[in-house]
Design a protein around this nucleic acid. Structure first.
Lengths: 153, 153
DNA sequence: TGATATTAGTTGCATAACTAACTATATGAT
DNA sequence: ATCATATAGTTAGTTATGCAACTAATATCA
């Protein structure tokens, strides 16, 4: 009886508490074993900067699905490690453009290799079309919730 | 070129940063709007206790996929709010059995309704067989990583 | 031009996560 | 019985998240 009530909550639990956390932890461990002293959250910021350097903090918020304070502090920590630097935008002094340092550029290939390796480990026995379906489901879930948020506002 | 390299990392990003976070945030907001002053992490502990009261902290670690310090502090905070109490096991004094209070029992139905509602919002347009496939993929991912961990040890 | 609103980013506070090191209790081998 | 080991839980330190309140710079428009 209680199990019927919980069926959907269970899915939430599965999504949030299990696989994604396991992947995150594994990637973190693989970084550490390789002597890399960055967190996966920091890595996810670098990841977007490797794709396009010099993004504003605001743009990083959008691309990493994080809020502004989170990005502020991630950039703080990345700056402490000399992996990025803040450069004021020449056209709008409110904006910080976040730029990679040479050190960060050197990290790109090794960390991407580790991430690919980790995902390969994680995805053993998972078919390509299943991955696509997961992505598609998650896209719809995300859209459902963010669009409903707009309605509420 | 870089996009080929990133394809798998992107999936990680999607899984970890987007949908599950969005669901978590929405559920948290729905709790708050209902005047409920508990976090989703606290709720996830209560959830397992509603299914089976009097679990040890160790058992809660396993069921919630959290480590021991996390459970210690979640129980600390739940105890502050008088939602659970620690009771020493009569047979092994190392063990704390975590027991629900009457206040926590009263929260069960309203919060489960909110969780179901939230998942219903999130899963609009998602077919039942897709949910099953997501669960199955995540189970395999989790197994891949936890079994590999055992090999490593 | 000058008051007002908006936008980008920061700071403070609470909760939560992981790691490592710790205490206390229980188990097991000699 | 004793000493080593394993187990349950706690504590300390660092990082991260969410929210709310804040500053500074820019845009709007009367």
């Amino acid at each position: 009886m209680i199990n019927n009530h919980f069926r959907r909550g269970e899915l939430y639990s599965v999504i949030n508490g299990m696989a994604s956390t396991a992947v995150a932890r594994r990637l973190q461990k693989n970084f550490r074993n390789a002597g890399l002293d960055i967190t996966i959250e920091q890595w996810s910021v670098l990841y977007h900067l490797w794709k396009e350097d010099g993004l504003s903090q605001q743009e990083l918020c959008v691309r990493t699905f994080r809020d502004k304070p989170s990005i502020t502090r991630l950039i703080d920590n990345l700056e402490k490690q000399s992996l990025v630097k803040r450069v004021a935008s020449p056209t709008d002094r409110r904006i910080n453009l976040v730029q990679l340092t040479d050190t960060a550029l050197e990290l790109q290939h090794i960390t991407i290799d580790l991430a690919n390796q980790t995902m390969a480990e994680a995805l053993v026995g998972v078919e390509k079309h299943e991955i696509e379906m997961v992505k598609s489901v998650f896209q719809r879930v995300y859209d459902n919730l963010t669009m409903a948020t707009l309605e509420v506002l």
